[in-house]
C-alpha cells in the first residue's frame, strides 16, 4: 500500500512538474511574441530563420530574444536562490534579502552611479561584488562555533539595515541624481541585451548543475542540524556552500535586473504549495516557476503602457502578492 502511495505521489509530482515546464515554455513564447512594436507570428518566424537587416530583425534578435532569455535566467536564479535559503535557514521568510544581497548590491550600485558617474559601466560588477561581500560579512558576523540559521537571519537583518542607512545617506545628499538609480531600485529589464545574457548564463548554469547534484543534502539540512549531523552531514560546510551558491545566483540576477525582491521570496513558496517540500522536485520546479513568473511579468511591463515601460518589479508585487495570498488561503495555510 505504502509503495503504491509513493508511486502515486511520484506520478502526481511528475505531472505537476511537467505542467510547470509547459507554462514556462509557453511564457517564453508569449514574451517573444509581444512587445511595444506589433510583429506577427509569421514575421517572427521569418526573421528567426533568415537573416536580414530589417527593423523587425533588429527588434526580435537584438532586443526581444536577449531580453526574454535574460528574464528567464533572472527568474531561475532568484527563485533557486530563495528556495535554497528557505531550506537551509528552515525559515519561510528567508530570501536573497536576508543574506544581504539586495542591500549590498543596492549600496554598491548607488556608490558607482552617483559618486563615480564616470564609471557607470561598472555598476553591474559593483552590484555583484556588493552582494557577495555583504553575504560574507553577514556570515562572518553570525559565526560562533558555526553559523546557526537564527544568528544568520539576525545578522542579515542588522547588516541590511546598516547598508540601507548608507543608501539613504547617499540619496539624501544627492537628491538631484537619484532619478538615475530608481530603475535599479525597483528592478527592470529595459536595457537588456546580449551582454547581459553573457553575464548571467554561466552563473545560472553552474548553479543549476550544482543544485541538481545536491538536493538530498538540502533535504537532510531541512531536518535540523542535529539530525543532519546524525546522518553524517558536515552541516557547517554544506550550509556555507549553499549560502555562497545562492549569493552568486542572486548577485548575478540583481546585477542584471536590479532589485527584484519578490521572486526570491515568494516564488519558492508558491511552488512549494503545489509540489511539496521535497527538494528533488522543488528544485527543478522552482527553475520553471521562477522563469515563468519573470517572463510573464516582464511581458506585461513592456506591453501595458507601451512604449513606456513600467519596472517589472512593480508588476510582480502588484499581481504576485495577491495571487500568493489567494493560494495560501485556498490551501488553508493562512
Amino acid at each position: 500500500m505504502n509503495v503504491r502511495n509513493t508511486e502515486e505521489k511520484k506520478i502526481k509530482k511528475g505531472f505537476i512538474l511537467s505542467v510547470f515546464i509547459f507554462i514556462s515554455v509557453l511564457s517564453f513564447f508569449i514574451s517573444m511574441s509581444n512587445g511595444a512594436v506589433k510583429i506577427s507570428f509569421k514575421e517572427i518566424a521569418d526573421v528567426l530563420f533568415t537573416e536580414s537587416s530589417s527593423v523587425n530583425y533588429q527588434i526580435i534578435w537584438n532586443v526581444r530574444l536577449p531580453r526574454t532569455i535574460t528574464a528567464a535566467l533572472v527568474g531561475t536564479c532568484l527563485a533557486l536562490s530563495g528556495a535554497i535559503l528557505q531550506g537551509i535557514m528552515r525559515n519561510p521568510l528567508a530570501g536573497p534579502n536576508i543574506i544581504g544581497v539586495s542591500s549590498g548590491a543596492g549600496l554598491m550600485t548607488l556608490i558607482v552611479i552617483i559618486l563615480f558617474p564616470n564609471y557607470y559601466y561598472l555598476a553591474p560588477v559593483g552590484s555583484f561584488t556588493g552582494a557577495l561581500l555583504s553575504t560574507l560579512f553577514i556570515y562572518f558576523l553570525a559565526w560562533r562555533d558555526g553559523a546557526a540559521p537564527t544568528k544568520l537571519i539576525l545578522a542579515g537583518v542588522a547588516v541590511s539595515s546598516l547598508l540601507s542607512a548608507g543608501n539613504n545617506i547617499i540619496m539624501t545628499f544627492y537628491p538631484d541624481k537619484v532619478s538615475g538609480v530608481i530603475g535599479f531600485m525597483v528592478g527592470g529589464l529595459s536595457s537588456v541585451n546580449w551582454k547581459h545574457v553573457c553575464m548571467i548564463w554561466p552563473y545560472a548554469l553552474t548553479g543549476i548543475i550544482l543544485l541538481m547534484l545536491l538536493p538530498n543534502k538540502l533535504n537532510i539540512l531541512m531536518l535540523g542540524d542535529e539530525s543532519a549531523v546524525g546522518l553524517g552531514l558536515n552541516v557547517e560546510k554544506t550550509r556555507f556552500i549553499f549560502i555562497i551558491i545562492s549569493s552568486l545566483l542572486a548577485g548575478a540576477a540583481v546585477s542584471v535586473a536590479g532589485l527584484l525582491g519578490f521572486v526570491g521570496l515568494i516564488v519558492p513558496h508558491m511552488t512549494r504549495l503545489f509540489i511539496g517540500s521535497d527538494y528533488r522536485y522543488l528544485m527543478p520546479a522552482t527553475i520553471f516557476t521562477g522563469s515563468a513568473t519573470v517572463l510573464l511579468c516582464d511581458t506585461l511591463a513592456r506591453v501595458l503602457f507601451a512604449p513606456v515601460e513600467i519596472p517589472v518589479g512593480i508588476i510582480m508585487s502588484a499581481l504576485g502578492a495577491p495571487f500568493f495570498l489567494f493560494l495560501l488561503r485556498r490551501k488553508g495555510e493562512y
Binding site: G35, P117, N118, G180, G188, S190, E309
Partner: peptide
C-alpha cells in the same frame, strides 16, 4: 506617451522610429 517627463522607454520603439539624432545627457564629469 505617459505622463512623466523622464520615463523608461521601449528599445523596440526606438528601433522602429529610428531617430535622426540621439542626444545623451550624462552625470559623468
Amino acid at each position: 506617451s505617459g505622463t512623466a517627463d523622464t520615463k523608461t522607454f521601449s528599445m523596440e520603439k526606438i528601433i522602429q522610429e529610428d531617430p535622426d539624432f540621439i542626444f545623451v545627457q550624462t552625470m559623468g564629469t
